[in-house]
């Protein structure tokens, strides 16, 4: 009996060791690009592409950061990125919740046809829509080079609606019956019952949106003409030139551009876990 217990503990330890080794390997794989980005950001140009590679710069070469910051009006770009990403995220979460609720919990004529039509739009590659969209923005709406062009078309995303609809479908209808007996209307039920229960889903939608908006390049470039309206990814593009790439300043600028996303991720990660535990307790 005692012996068996020992074997069990040993087995358990070996198992844990295996798990940890795997996790550590995974972490290294995930962390490496970040490490390489930051290390390159501090290297002078002649140390970047050596064979064998240099893991760390011989000295911290801060000039890359200064060069990167001065290469474009990054202050304005950061403000624009923040503003556009925040507004589109809040907007999308709001509209997505309304649409997803309608598709998940309400019955109306042509609901399925409409939903399939919505999904159908996801099959069209964005690049194909670029020229027609440009024509709409430029000719019909006269929104070129304005925040409208950067924000309004992105307030609704079919992917978000789909994701949240699936989430809403898992919430039992009995809650709605109970709420109705207590005299609760649909709108109030949506915001006081459905939304708090769907926090992980909503956090996912918001995170996807924020990252997507923060990284958006082609749309911003095509729809804007002045530095006043451009965002960080457009700034990052200037380090790639006709006959080469300035990796040092590019990595320095990328490091700066990535920080807000990283902070946001740490922040929402807590939300994720909370949301998951909350829904876990329920069932």
């Amino acid at each position: 009996m005692k012996k068996e217990g020992k074997v069990y503990i040993l087995q358990r330890r070996a198992y844990l060791l295996g798990i940890y080794v795997l996790l550590i390997l995974g972490t290294i794989v995930m962390i490496f690009p970040f490490f390489w980005m930051i290390s390159t950001a501090f290297k002078p140009a002649n140390e970047i592409q050596l064979m064998p590679p240099k893991w760390l710069p011989s000295r911290f070469y801060w000039q890359n950061f200064a060069d990167a910051w001065n290469a474009a009006p990054f202050g304005r770009y950061f403000f624009n990125s923040f503003f556009v990403a925040t507004v589109t995220t809040i907007g999308e979460v709001f509209f997505t919740i309304l649409a997803a609720y309608a598709f998940a919990k309400m019955d109306f004529l042509g609901k399925n046809v409409l939903f399939i039509a919505f999904l159908g739009t996801m099959m069209i590659p964005g690049e194909m829509l670029l020229v027609p969209n440009y024509l709409t923005i430029a000719r019909t709406l006269h929104w070129l080079d304005t925040y409208y062009a950067l924000i309004v078309p992105w307030l609704v995303s079919v992917f978000g609606i789909f994701l949240l609809r699936q989430f809403f479908l898992t919430i039992p209808d009995e809650l709605w019956d109970a709420a109705r007996i207590d005299g609760c209307g649909r709108f109030r039920y949506l915001w006081t019952v459905m939304v708090p229960l769907s926090r992980p889903g909503i956090a996912t939608v918001a995170l996807f949106k924020f990252i997507g908006s923060w990284n958006a390049f082609l749309w911003v470039l095509i729809m804007t003409n002045s530095d006043r309206m451009r965002t960080v990814p457009v700034g990052l593009a200037i380090f790639r030139a006709e006959a080469g790439t300035e990796y040092g300043p590019l990595m320095a600028a990328s490091t700066m551009a990535m920080l807000p996303i990283l902070l946001l991720f740490f922040f929402t990660q807590k939300q994720f876990i909370q949301g998951i535990t909350r829904s876990g307790l329920k069932s």
Binding site: L130, V131, Y134, L135, A138, R139, L218, L221, I222, N225, V234, A237, R240, E242
Partner: peptide
């Protein structure tokens, strides 16, 4: 207007518009 590829896309769209 970005790299040559972006510039070309943008010019083509602008000519169409």
């Amino acid at each position: 207007q970005g790299h040559y590829g972006d510039l070309s896309q943008k010019l083509l769209a602008a000519v169409l518009a």
